[in-house]
């Protein structure tokens, strides 16, 4: 860990490019860019994440504000602040167990289901607080769609799956349901494959098709944000490729926040990338910046597979 080769020409260039008003960046050690941040994190000392100025404006569709989460006594997310730009794909990367899923599931308050969860700080979705006392969680989850690691179609027909969200929110008109079903399935690049068997069970679809069906189900209610937790990790390479294409396509209309374990995937599908480590945000910026000229050597080390 400590025998990192120092990176010539990297840190001076980078730091100059950064908004001098961003105190988090200014606080960073300029001269000795070793694994200071990671060792600080490991020793539970305060550290300053490297935030690229392009995402430091605080006008994101999702604003994570000094958010911490505890599973019982165990602090799993440590004061993360993150601004997710609207209309783009943002990837969360980091070693397994660093709290990516936990952070993602905090956005639609799915962690409410877990016993003994406590949070501090707040998250805003479309300007509305997620954790304020009077929050309508049902409405929040309607505005924030989610696609899971393991595809989870409901044991009903393809059609009923896609319109599930509309139905539980009270839409009964057949014509509306049919229209939304077709639009969502087209949006999920699944229409041509299933249009002749909308009434057959969704459980009969292949793994990749099931995952695209779950995406169709999520976008059927036109969410403001789409959360994806390693949506391809259970799929074969071809199905993965299709989902990646789909994510790129979807990002024209939706904001996507995706957790991925796969560096290649993050670089292919995302516009912005946040690197997390042990529940902390380490570096956040445009994907090209993170993958080609990261501010911190730690980030570069992780991305090139030297640890994690």
């Amino acid at each position: 860990m400590n025998e990192t080769p120092s990176k010539p020409a990297m840190s001076p260039v980078k730091v100059e490019a950064i908004d001098p008003l961003d105190s988090a960046v200014l606080d960073m050690p300029r001269q000795a860019p070793r694994f200071n941040v990671l060792s600080a994190i490991q020793n539970d000392q305060p550290h300053a994440p490297a935030i690229h100025p392009s995402v430091a404006h605080g006008k994101g569709i999702v604003e994570i504000k000094d958010f911490s989460l505890y599973y019982g006594p165990k602090k799993t997310v440590h004061s993360v602040s993150l601004s997710i730009p609207v209309g783009h794909v943002t990837a969360l990367i980091g070693p397994s167990g660093c709290g990516k899923s936990t952070l993602l599931r905090s956005v639609n308050r799915l962690n409410d289901l877990v016993d003994g969860v406590r949070t501090t700080g707040d998250i805003l979705v479309g300007g509305e607080s997620v954790y304020a006392p009077g929050t309508d969680v049902i409405d929040l989850r309607r505005r924030v769609g989610m696609v899971f690691q393991k595809s989870n179609p409901f044991p009903m027909s393809i059609f009923d799956n896609v319109v599930y969200g509309l139905r539980i929110h009270g839409e009964r008109r057949r014509s509306v349901l049919e229209e939304v079903c077709e639009r969502s399935l087209r949006g999920a690049a699944l229409w041509d494959e299933v249009k002749d068997r909308l009434q057959s069970s969704a459980m009969g679809l292949s793994g990749g098709q099931q995952q695209r069906l779950c995406i169709a189900r999520a976008i059927a209610v036109e969410p403001q944000v789409l959360l994806m937790d390693e949506p391809c990790s259970a799929l074969d390479p071809i199905a993965t490729l299709k989902i990646e294409e789909l994510i790129l396509e979807i990002s024209q209309k939706y904001t996507v926040l995706i957790v991925t374990h796969n560096m290649g995937q993050a670089s292919r599908v995302s516009d912005y990338t946040a690197f997390m480590y042990l529940g902390r945000l380490v570096e956040y910026g445009p994907t090209s910046h993170i993958f080609q000229t990261p501010t911190l050597p730690e980030t570069e080390q992780y991305i090139t597979g030297k640890f994690g």
């Binding site: 289901l113 989850r141 989870n152 599930y164 969200g165 209610v221």
Partner: peptide, 8 residues
């Protein structure tokens, strides 16, 4: 979780 995440 799937149904809850849909806003059920």
């Amino acid at each position: 979780e799937g149904s809850i995440a849909m806003g059920a």
